[in-house]
């Protein structure tokens, strides 16, 4: 449980951080809740770490023109407890609150969570349902992608070497929409065995799923059924169709598929009940 030697730097400007990351050999350190355990097990042995914790301007939650901007270094706890997030995007606060335990939420960051792209991470389900975007920054400049395009596969994202997640943006929740996140948690880690986020309005549905497949995804088939007037159970029933479901010692593929339908129905029903 002792990592290999690594170089460490803690730059105090974004520019310096991006400089140090430019050649792609260093790893970003955010909350360290995923990276440090891997390093201690020597499953990850980066030669150098660039810690973003002292970089100013990466930790914020603000609303501009109906868009909620969340700095990459904003912790799960900060999102969960933000009055602004709760008021303007309750689904995100609900997702943040469901992550791991208090210690993890105090350290882990939204940028780290999406960059790590763990197939069982909680955030992505909600962020996909929210049609979130991520803004990436590198020495060469910035680009913005939809989260859907950003998440490529298991622990694989569109991040290029030298690039960091700078910000996550979501729209302020529509007035007619109710939202909910429902998950079965794995009792050891708290990660989602299956988690489903639902945003439901009149003739409007967005469903994000995590834990079920190699990456979080939007269940467009469920959305279409709901938008076409199907009830929660009928819509939820198709959520795992065509999905090559994950399997591990906590849940077989069949059980996960089943859970996805159960939690989808629960999330949808709750979202509907919360819609005004």
């Amino acid at each position: 449980m002792i990592p290999q030697n690594f170089a460490y730097s803690s730059p105090n400007s974004l520019e310096a951080a991006l400089d140090q990351l430019a050649d792609g050999s260093a790893k970003v350190l955010a909350g360290g809740m995923s990276l440090i355990p891997l390093m201690k097990l020597r499953l990850a042995s980066p030669e150098s770490l660039v810690d973003l914790r002292r970089v100013p301007g990466l930790k914020y939650i603000r609303e501009e023109n109906g868009v909620l901007h969340i700095g990459a270094m904003t912790t799960h706890y900060e999102v969960e407890s933000s009055v602004l997030v709760r008021a303007t995007c309750p689904l995100l606060a609900e997702a943040a609150a469901s992550i791991g335990d208090v210690q993890v939420r105090n350290a882990g960051t939204i940028g780290g969570s999406v960059a790590h792209a763990d197939p069982a991470a909680d955030y992505p389900a909600s962020l996909l349902a929210l049609e979130a975007s991520v803004t990436l920054a590198s020495k060469a400049g910035e680009r913005t992608l939809s989260l859907e395009d950003f998440l490529v596969d298991t622990m694989t994202t569109a991040l290029e070497p030298g690039e960091i997640v700078r910000e996550v943006t979501v729209g302020v929740e529509r007035n007619d929409v109710g939202t909910a996140y429902a998950k079965m948690l794995q009792p050891a880690s708290g990660f989602a065995i299956v988690g489903v986020a639902a945003r439901i309005g009149t003739g409007f549905a967005r469903i994000g799923v995590t834990g079920l497949a190699s990456k979080a995804y939007r269940a467009r088939n469920v959305e279409a059924l709901l938008e076409g007037g199907a009830d929660a159970a009928a819509a939820a029933a198709v959520i795992a169709e065509g999905i090559d479901a994950n399997s591990d010692l906590h849940a077989s593929a069949d059980y996960r598929r089943h859970l996805a339908t159960v939690y989808a129905a629960r999330a949808i029903r709750q979202a509907i009940s919360r819609a005004r």
């Binding site: 355990p37 097990l41 794995q186 009792p187 050891a188 880690s189 990660f191 010692l249 906590h250």
Partner: peptide, 11 residues
């Protein structure tokens, strides 16, 4: 031992 860490062994 496939439950070899606290991420998989549920105390």
């Amino acid at each position: 031992l496939i439950t070899g860490e606290l991420m998989d062994y549920a105390v």
